[in-house]
Simulated assay, not measured.
Amino acid sequence: MASPPAIEAVDLVKRYGPNTAVDGVSFAVAPGSVLGLLGPNGAGKTTTVRMMTTLTKPTSGTARVAGFDVCTHPDQVRRHMGLTGQVATVDELLTGRENLRMIGGLLGIRRKHLVQLTDQLLHQFSLSDAAERVVKSYSGGMRRRLDLAVSLLASPPVLFLDEPTTGLDPRSRSELWEVLRALVAQGTTLLLTTQYLEEADQLADDIVVIDRGRIIAQGSPLELKQQAGRASLVVTVADGADLEAARALLAGTGTDVFVDAAARRLTASADGLGDMIEVAGRLQDSGIAVDDIGLSRPSLDDVFLTLTGHRTEDTEEVSA
């Protein structure tokens, strides 16, 4: 028998006056998995998270976290989840260790256990060497890691991350991804909102694409990429090779071929690896020398453009 969802949204709606920020959003997240809630600023991602974490009451619909209804059992929901928002909420005038001990004390964690837990989290998030430094001296990546460590003090089985890598440099973002993968490996369930398509591709088992408050697609990263069309077969012939003969050979597969003569590159649609192997064999049999041949699948950016007609440009999100 399948386990019940660790996170479930049920026809969530949020209106602010005449404006509808979230319009009938429903999805479920299996225990120990990662759901990426993907969309541009203004899509309704943050509003959805606020409803699911009891910070905002739904206009209609509901959600369940760790089996508890956010409308009827909000206290139980808060006890079973952690939340990391878009902006780190740690105290800049305290050290990393002091931040953890302060929040742990507010959570009622016994002192002896809190000392051990603080050391454990500082080590887990690679902050031990900076534990006695005030947070205002931390880099952006260090602050985000400390913020995440604070959210894990109560060992919640469910963690909500609202654009956790916004403003981080590529190295800090990559380091945080590794931390998140380790949490999932330990059994934590994550709901991750992001406007970074690469981030959703890297971390999420399933993705929900939301635009203007509505879900417009959902599925695994591969399933969504398949919605954007077939893969592309890209062939770069060797200098001096017969480009027209190569074009005719690729056209024989029944697809249009785009030719970049200056780069000696030909691009045609393909169904998968089998097509690439077949074309490579034909090129070899025809004596056409090739410098490179590869298969390129649509990116999540292609998916978003196909689904919405625009990329993840910034818009203003309705809020109150």
Score class of each variant (00 low, 15 high):
residue 213 G to T: 08
residue 158 V to C: 10
residue 61 G to E: 01
residue 25 V to M: 10
residue 92 E to F: 00
residue 112 K to D: 15
residue 122 L to Q: 13
residue 270 A to E: 01
residue 300 L to W: 04
residue 190 L to F: 01
residue 23 D to E: 05
residue 119 D to Q: 10
residue 5 P to D: 10
residue 30 A to H: 05
residue 304 F to S: 01
residue 174 S to Y: 11
residue 205 D to I: 09
residue 267 T to D: 12
residue 65 V to P: 02
residue 114 L to H: 04
residue 129 D to Q: 14
residue 117 L to M: 13
residue 1 M to W: 02
residue 119 D to N: 15
residue 44 G to S: 03
residue 302 D to L: 13
residue 301 D to R: 02
residue 279 V to R: 02
residue 274 G to D: 15
residue 128 S to R: 14
residue 293 I to S: 03
residue 255 T to R: 14
residue 149 A to T: 06
residue 318 V to P: 09
residue 71 C to G: 05
residue 292 D to C: 09
residue 274 G to H: 12
residue 29 V to I: 04
residue 154 A to G: 11
residue 85 G to Y: 05
residue 212 R to M: 04
residue 24 G to Q: 08
residue 240 G to Y: 09
residue 11 D to Q: 12
residue 56 T to H: 07
residue 226 Q to E: 14
residue 168 L to P: 01
residue 57 K to V: 13
residue 213 G to V: 09
residue 193 T to P: 01
residue 157 P to V: 14
residue 3 S to L: 15
residue 112 K to L: 11
residue 123 H to T: 15
residue 267 T to P: 02
residue 11 D to F: 05
residue 45 K to I: 02
residue 70 V to C: 08
residue 97 R to D: 00
residue 64 R to D: 00
residue 177 W to M: 09
residue 269 S to N: 15
residue 132 E to T: 12
residue 261 A to H: 00
residue 212 R to E: 14
residue 231 A to N: 14
residue 196 Y to F: 03
residue 257 V to Y: 03
residue 212 R to N: 12
residue 26 S to L: 06
residue 297 R to V: 15
residue 120 Q to Y: 14
residue 183 L to D: 07
residue 170 P to I: 07
residue 205 D to K: 05
residue 205 D to S: 12
residue 143 R to Y: 06
residue 79 R to W: 09
residue 84 T to F: 08
residue 21 A to V: 10
residue 175 E to R: 12
residue 221 P to C: 10
residue 305 L to S: 07
residue 185 A to H: 08
residue 23 D to Q: 05
residue 187 G to M: 04
residue 89 T to M: 11
residue 203 L to S: 05
residue 215 I to G: 00
residue 315 T to C: 03
residue 147 D to A: 04
residue 203 L to K: 12
residue 31 P to K: 06
residue 129 D to M: 06
residue 258 F to L: 11
residue 108 G to V: 04
residue 43 A to W: 11
residue 269 S to K: 15
residue 291 D to A: 03
residue 145 R to L: 11
residue 191 L to Y: 07
residue 124 Q to S: 13
residue 181 R to T: 02
residue 197 L to R: 00
